[in-house]
Amino acid sequence: MRALVVDDSRTMRRIVAGILERQGFEVLQAEHGEEALAVLEEDDRFDLLCIDWNMPVMDGLELVAAVRKNRQWRNITMMMVTTEAEQSQIVRALAAGAHEYLIKPFTPEELRAKLELLGLVSVKELA
């Protein structure tokens, strides 16, 4: 499994990448939407994009829309990971083509639960 973490905060990228790596993902990082697109143009074998909303140059919503437009990338799962907590924002992101939405801050378990939901990791039984 490969993931690309797109966030302008280095700390945040590290946190998300760390959790994904512990779930067995190989993780690459990008600082904003445009950089993410450049990475994808180079090599698009990603199962998951974790995308922050507010970033310089190209924001997360634009990135989601750009990835959605390219038919070649339709199998890539996109999850917004953002502090934007308004219900209307979630609706916008999903309408643009994001598959899941995780509000910051979150625990590693919450991120893992989202990965389960997306079928990217196996379901862990509840205690």
């Binding site: 219900q87 979630i90 999903l94 994001a98 939405y101 509000i103 919450e110 639960a113 389960e116």
Partner: peptide
């Protein structure tokens, strides 16, 4: 709570059937 909705509930269902 957010932790509870983040467990198993797809975001698409959340926005359709829940209010913040």
């Amino acid at each position: 709570s957010r932790i509870e909705t983040n467990r198993g509930l797809p975001s698409s269902m959340l926005v359709r059937y829940f209010d913040a």
